[in-house]
């Protein structure tokens, strides 16, 4: 694909880039902070978390920066009051929908959702908590899937399919009943597709997927490891 040079404006800054890139990629290259949750460098972007919303002049809706390609003369705003308000609402809804009990969570202190809460200055949640009864799948010998902490970013699903190629994970149901499932909604430990590689665990931004060998508050994931792996696999020796 031939690249054409184009010029656009982000938060008042004039930026030169090439066609075919997403707004998020261009922002990252230019040190413009965009909050993300479902984005993981190297795997397909799906615009699921709605945190990277940006305003584009002439477009009435907010667009997700990770799935919107740049175009010539685009005028983009990334941190207006409206966007900040939406980001805070989104974060609060993540917290209200499942059971995120930081104090007893394995990921406490190393959690992207917790960090997000600080980034959007969330000191409390204005919506009623749903307190759903969620399962914890401990059937896998090495890892645990805790639906209480899952925000359905689907990073695990994509990393399993696109990087490992095992296609163990999928998504079931809709709305608040949505669940990540192993194979055809069977216990993870009985999976015939899972290769036990643990990439989903590294990719998971919260305490929803974690290794059994870790104790409370000691979980430290390295999702950038996945991005590095993808780059390394492109190398021809």
């Amino acid at each position: 694909m031939s690249m054409t040079k184009l010029t656009l404006q982000i938060d008042g800054r004039s930026i030169e880039t090439e066609s075919g890139r997403t707004i998020l990629e261009v922002c990252k290259e230019n040190d413009i902070t965009i909050l993300t949750m479902c984005h993981l460098k190297g795997i397909t972007d799906v615009g699921a978390c709605r945190l990277c919303l940006v305003e584009i002049e002439g477009v009435s809706k907010l667009m997700s920066a990770c799935t919107t390609k740049v175009a010539d003369k685009m005028i983009i705003r990334t941190s207006t009051e409206k966007i900040k308000r939406y980001q805070r609402i989104t974060t609060e809804l993540f917290a209200a929908e499942r059971n995120h009990v930081c104090s007893v969570c394995i990921a406490n202190g190393h959690c992207e959702l917790q960090k997000l809460a600080y980034d959007v200055k969330m000191d409390h949640i204005r919506y009623p908590y749903l307190f759903p009864q969620c399962e914890v799948d401990t059937s896998h010998p090495l890892y645990v899937l805790d639906h209480n902490r899952c925000i359905v970013c689907t990073r695990c699903v994509r990393v399993c399919a696109e990087v490992e190629g095992a296609y163990n994970w999928d998504v079931m149901n809709r709305g608040t009943n949505v669940r990540i499932i192993s194979d055809f909604n069977t216990p993870w430990g009985e999976s015939i597709t899972c290769s036990d590689c643990g990439k989903c665990v590294e990719a998971c931004p919260t305490g929803a997927l974690w290794p059994k060998a870790v104790v409370q508050g000691q979980l430290n994931k390295a999702p950038e490891f996945i991005s590095d792996l993808i780059e390394k696999r492109k190398m021809k020796l």
Binding site: V101, Y129, F131
Partner: peptide, 16 residues
């Protein structure tokens, strides 16, 4: 604190 704000551990019985 978290119990007053998000029920925290005291609210873990809400699932049942």
């Amino acid at each position: 604190g978290d119990c007053a704000i998000m029920t925290n551990v005291t609210g873990m019985r809400n699932y049942f």
